[in-house]
Design a protein around this nucleic acid. Sequence first.
DNA 1: AAGTGTGAACCTCTTCACAGCA
DNA 2: TGCTGTGAAGAGGTTCACACTT
Lengths: 224, 224
Amino acid sequence: MKSTDIPIKTIERLSLYRRILRELLEKGEEYIFSYRLAVLADKKASQVRRDFMVLNQFASPQKGYAVRELIECISGLLDSGEKLKMAIVGIGNMGRAFINYFKGRGKNLEITAGFDNDDRKNNRVINGCRIYPVEKMKEILRKEKIRIGIITVPEDRAQNIAEELIQSGIKAIVNVAPVPIKSPADVHIENLDLTSVFEKTAYFAKISTDSPEKDGGVEHGRDI
Amino acid sequence: MKSTDIPIKTIERLSLYRRILRELLEKGEEYIFSYRLAVLADKKASQVRRDFMVLNQFASPQKGYAVRELIECISGLLDSGEKLKMAIVGIGNMGRAFINYFKGRGKNLEITAGFDNDDRKNNRVINGCRIYPVEKMKEILRKEKIRIGIITVPEDRAQNIAEELIQSGIKAIVNVAPVPIKSPADVHIENLDLTSVFEKTAYFAKISTDSPEKDGGVEHGRDI
DNA sequence: AAGTGTGAACCTCTTCACAGCA
DNA sequence: TGCTGTGAAGAGGTTCACACTT
């Protein structure tokens, strides 16, 4: 019953496609060709078609893919039944930014609880999200059946917090602290290392200045 | 003069290794073996050694790699001469979080200017970073010789802002808006799609609950 | 003896190119 | 005819396994 023959990269893109498809649907577009979705998602058409192979959703050469069905198929693959509850540990600037990020639009993910040891922060409610002291973490996580943890604490606390999350039954963690987290094999850790992202970007800025200018031409788009 | 035979993933890891190596140096460790660094970085030893091949820095079987030299080598590869100046467009929660993220510790990257159209935000100074109205963007970017742009505006403004950044000579962009940005080939775009990251993580949480528990064993570490 | 440096095998993901179909 | 679905080739990244070094 191995449910993962689906490439990770495909999962990521399906998330992106779904957002674009929802926008199309709002604009009344019921069908889309792979090459047009490819432009909107900044991918190749063949990539789009390959990705959709995992959905067992077929298109007609005349009309293309049925947008509504695609969205449902992707949702069936990505979403759980109900809204997926997440908890965030570390209510600094980054923590607040994430809480805010998930508020508003009808996302299927929500941050249900926050945790911080700073007494000025806990027992407050930030943008609809209640903040508790870290001691209460295990209790709240189990009570609320929270499935995903987000770590935005300083790097020296990250591994420790991760282990507490795992002991409370959390099965997936997004770690924003700039240090990799180690975990048992059945817990998925997403190390979102912003420092690496920016240093990589800086590296490209550097080598693009060293080497000669080569213009590929601006391709506008996405303003349908 | 193609400066890129270095794998992108290696660049990302070198950024991580450097942080770990700096910590080691602070603790007085002058030499390190690949297998030990591998544990700290949560990678395989062979991966570490393969990555270090691009540095032309060799180790001795007795002592391992010289930490100080490694750091310098990595810095020579990743860093430009001076602090690299970045600008951020969109001073919401996420924008402020990034400004804060780059303050403090002696990083070689700094956010020099912020831009926002909200009059309550511009002309203010947030954590040392001056906020300007978007109209002033081209002027400030050129005057300050800013090399990297960060986009934290709502998705419908992102492509437009990107094009303005590019017209002002920016050569690399980190885009945090949940929509891919298209650009000429000589501009590096890093689409940091948080929604995809979280929906991917949710997917793993979902399938890990569907499938049987298989424990790989907790591996502690990183608390040296 | 115990670690390194690296060719080669392996695995994952992307792209091509073309038969097949409405 | 014009787009899809997909086998096969290609590109990129990881891991193995072992000769080599001190």
